[in-house]
Simulated scan of single mutants.
Amino acid sequence: MAASKEQQAEADERRTALLRIRRERPKLPFHHPDILALGYTSDGAARKDFYRALESRRKKLAIEVTAYREEQNEILDALLETHLPSAIEGDIKASEHVLKILERQAKLNGWEEALKAELSGPGGGPVPIRGETLAELRNLIRTAGDPDEEDDDLPGDLEDDGDADDDGDNA
């Protein structure tokens, strides 16, 4: 059964008080009398309500951030509409404005994060590097895909170092 508006208001008030107490005294246990005095029947009920309150605050914050982003994007889009035609025609000052606007939009929307890449090892974890030889490290780069090399043979590669022990020393 859904809670009435009055019950919901009481729960919100109790959660706000609980959050305030936990913020002021973070090490205070949930079974403390000050917390139970808010109307909780047990420390488990207080703990559960505390995490519900945190989740509710997180969702509200996410909605506020989304609304802020939308508002800022509308402003930036309007500025782009104003300056872009002049920038395309060669106006240096307008071009600088457009560039700054585009940079701001990318930062606001997290588009720059999408451009970052990471090399990962087995199972998505870190690349295991132990005292490898230069040849072994170059082989690792080739395996991962060096953006500067197009499948070129690097000096000291394991396949062409001229010896069978794969230690990269050519001896």
Rank of each mutant, 00 (worst) to 15 (best):
S120D: 13
G131Y: 14
I92G: 13
L80N: 05
R25N: 14
G125N: 09
R138G: 06
R52N: 12
R104F: 03
D91Y: 06
E112D: 15
F30L: 04
T41A: 15
G131S: 11
K100E: 15
D12T: 06
E118N: 09
P128I: 09
R15W: 09
I101L: 12
L54Y: 05
E71R: 13
P26F: 00
I92R: 15
L28V: 06
S56T: 11
I21G: 02
E136C: 03
K93C: 10
E132G: 10
R15T: 04
D43E: 12
G124Y: 01
K100N: 13
A53R: 01
R104M: 07
G124L: 00
E103I: 07
H97A: 15
R130D: 15
H83W: 08
R69A: 07
L54S: 05
L80W: 06
S95R: 13
I75E: 09
A37C: 00
Y68A: 11
E113A: 14
R22I: 04
R130V: 15
S95I: 08
K93N: 12
K48E: 14
L99N: 13
G39D: 03
R22A: 06
P122M: 02
V127W: 02
A62H: 11
R57I: 03
W111T: 14
L134W: 08
P126E: 14
K116D: 09
D34Q: 06
K48S: 12
E55V: 05
A37H: 05
F30M: 05
I129S: 03
R20P: 02
G124H: 03
Y51M: 04
T41F: 06
Y40A: 00
L76K: 06
N109A: 03
E96K: 13
E70S: 10
R23V: 01
K59F: 07
L102H: 07
K107M: 08
P26G: 00
P85E: 00
I88V: 12
L36V: 00
P122Q: 05
T82E: 14
A87T: 04
H32G: 00
N139G: 10
P26A: 00
A87D: 00
T16Q: 13
L134E: 13
E112K: 09
L99I: 14
I92N: 12
Q105D: 11
H97Y: 15
H32A: 08
S95Q: 13
A78D: 10
I75R: 14
S56E: 15
S42N: 01
I101C: 02
I35N: 03
K116C: 07
T16K: 10
L102V: 11
L54K: 12
N109C: 03
Y40L: 00
V127P: 01
I75K: 14
H97Q: 15
T82Q: 14
I101G: 02
A114C: 12
P128M: 01
V127I: 10
N73D: 07
L61T: 15
R20G: 09
